[in-house]
């Protein structure tokens, strides 16, 4: 579904991503792990068009993604969350979700010529967004401003928002970072449910227990290059991975 080949990106003298290649198959949950500064978020930014690569290839369902603008990539069915939560603080929760929808009422000509239709469409979308908020347990707060929620609740809204996009490939940047165990279990269940619905998920996470619990496959990055890929069990025993995380054995 997603093929990444020889991706390269440097910032000044630092090679953030170096000949990185891996793939994500349809309906798979893949974890992207690696020490801090390994280039994980940079890979996300390259995939979603927020930064331009130096060279390499990325194909999504056969369509090349490199050089395509972020909003167009999103419209191909790829959506993402950000490492730091990015909600729209002065909009309500429902409005935060409605933004994720593609509606005819977003276009001025339709507003002028099809006012009834856009009203109807907005109503249906609003109902769907309330359902999604119900799914993450925040239906009661649908008319609250996003900024008045707790951190964990904001994370849930962010996940509900990517559900509202109808995207097939979800890129999640640290979905459970800084989240309490109850909320973590909740997010885990939601991701599992998403997989059952046929979604494909690629996520970055430092919480290894979470990664081992949920990932079908793990891709490990170190210094911008993928150094290992396999099932969670294989990765746990991989000497190169241990070395990347814990350092080389030194003879004393």
């Amino acid at each position: 579904m997603l093929h990444i080949k020889n991706l390269n990106k440097h910032f000044g003298g630092i090679k953030a991503v170096k000949d990185c290649s891996f793939e994500v198959k349809e309906n798979e949950i893949v974890a992207l792990i690696g020490p801090n500064g390994a280039g994980k978020t940079t890979v996300f930014n390259l995939l979603t068009g927020f930064i331009k690569p130096d060279k390499g290839h990325v194909h999504y369902k056969g369509t090349p993604l490199l050089g395509v603008k972020p909003y167009k990539i999103s419209n191909l069915g790829i959506t993402r969350t950000f490492q730091l939560i990015k909600l729209l603080p002065k909009l309500t929760l429902v409005e935060n979700l409605l933004i994720a929808k593609q509606q005819s009422g977003e276009h001025l000509l339709n507003i002028m010529f099809k006012p009834k239709y856009i009203k109807h469409e907005e109503k249906e979308n609003r109902n769907h967004c309330v359902e999604l908020l119900d799914l993450v347990g925040l239906k009661d707060k649908r008319n609250h401003y996003a900024k008045n929620l707790s951190y964990g609740q904001q994370k849930l809204v962010e996940i509900a928002r990517i559900l509202a996009t109808d995207a097939d490939l979800l890129l999640l940047d640290e979905p459970v970072a800084g989240v309490n165990p109850v909320m973590r279990a909740k997010i885990k269940n939601i991701l599992k449910k998403l997989k059952e619905q046929g979604k494909t998920i690629l996520f970055i996470e430092h919480d290894m227990k979470f990664v081992m619990d949920i990932a079908d496959r793990v891709v490990v990055l170190d210094y911008g290059t993928e150094i290992a890929t396999g099932t969670p069990k294989q990765i746990q025993k991989n000497p190169r991975v241990l070395q990347a995380y814990l350092g080389k054995k030194v003879k004393l």
Partner: peptide
């Protein structure tokens, strides 16, 4: 950035 990432 959010608006862009949501296809706008």
């Amino acid at each position: 950035l959010v608006a862009k990432s949501l296809g706008k």
